[in-house]
Write a protein that binds this DNA or RNA. Structure first.
Lengths: 120, 120
DNA sequence: TTCTTATTTTAGCAAATGCTTAAATAATGG
DNA sequence: CCATTATTTAAGCATTTGCTAAAATAAGAA
């Protein structure tokens, strides 16, 4: 990376340093949220999360039927959500039901209440 | 798209239809949130939003210094945020200061308060 | 006007994403 | 065991993303 810094004189060097330290200190929280939002920042996955929030549990087939999408495509989205522990699988015979994990429920309680109240 | 539906007998067809209708009705809200989270779901952009939340306003150079990133790369992230009206530019001579837009501040008030309280 | 500074834009490219198709697991019922 | 059903996984491919480097704007200052 070539460094093309601005040469400006009125830069507040104290502010820059304070911000750098603050960011560094918050790195893990920021990482957690950026990963969470990255997953939710996809129309298909947000719909899946929204559906699980309301229906409590659904299997791949259900989601595939509702979203009118290929089962394999849905399954691959579910895997991403599962890998980051946003949803949990529960096997019942051949069927695997997914539900929202508690850790992320706090966030989605908030997000989906905004969506439903249209407080945009 | 080849339709490979599950043949299961115990599917609740009423539930499927209700969900389809619900999703359709919420499409625009879900779209808004998925776009918002898609933008925030990137470590660099989330850091930028976090910085603007605290510092009120910053120019590209400031952000470039703080994140130790190429100015052009930062500028391209700022453009995406600006395009979706998440941040607003304000020119002051040669310098352009960016700040969070009011529309999204509600969401970030919540997200960043969680980040700071480590309520993950 | 020309030079400098702050920023944006463009082009190019490697890496990541999301879908489709086909093959692989896994559980259940003859 | 074999066949069926539900689901996951792997391979392939087109699209998108995010960065670098270089060129283009834009606003002073000389």
């Amino acid at each position: 990376m070539k460094k093309i810094t601005c040469v400006r004189t009125q830069v507040n060097q104290g502010q820059i340093e304070r911000c750098k330290k603050d960011i560094e200190q918050r790195t893990s929280s920021l990482q957690f949220f950026s990963e969470t939002m990255n997953l939710a920042g996809n129309m298909v996955r947000l719909k899946i999360l929204y559906l699980l929030f309301h229906e409590k549990q659904l299997c791949v087939c259900d989601i595939s039927d509702i979203l009118e999408m290929n089962i394999s495509a849905v399954s691959q989205h579910l895997r991403k959500l599962k890998d980051k522990k946003m949803i949990l699988p529960r096997r019942e015979g051949q069927t695997i039901y997914y539900s929202l994990s508690e850790k992320h429920k706090v966030i989605f309680d908030y997000v989906f209440s905004m969506i439903e109240n249209e407080n945009l």
